[in-house]
Amino acid sequence: MAEVPSYLSPTGQEIVFLLLGAVAVGAALLVVTTRQLVHAALWLVVCFGALAGCYLVLTAEFVAWVQVLIYVGAVVALLLFGLMLTRAPIGRSADLDSGNRPVAALVALATAALLVTVVIDGFRTAYADLTPGRGAAKELGSSIFRNWVLPFEALSVLLLAALIGAIVLSRTDIRGR
């Protein structure tokens, strides 16, 4: 491994990434702590958007756009529909957290401590040179349809199954025998 650039003199890309990362983590925290259901969904949009920015910084353009399209576009919309269909209250609700909260906080903090420790310990010296274009749609597309075509097809079957499953579960006029 070649010598690693100092942590004390960050590049511009790193600064941007850290800022975006901070936004993502802060938004995620708000998602899990906010007292308003709809706000949680909206903070999720912010979090996912920031993550898409992170992907861009990491030169994964195609993934970033897919993230924006599917997560920010489809998934959050789906979640909002879910909220509406379950008649989630608009505005503050006092009981969004279960009684399990202290235990959850403890476990989450322990997880964070463990993961951060291990990750810092393991990848202190890892450094990646960013070369633009590696994550372009062309490169990824050729990789998918050359090397990953079989998993891709399998995945399409999975999607179909999930589609049918969701329909069956949602419709009330289909009864099990």
């Binding site: 476990v107 989450a108 993961l115």
Partner: peptide, 14 residues
């Protein structure tokens, strides 16, 4: 790692 832990918290506490 931080995002994951936050997710864990959310799963367990919400």
């Amino acid at each position: 790692a931080l995002l994951f832990s936050i997710g864990v918290y959310g799963v367990l506490a919400r």
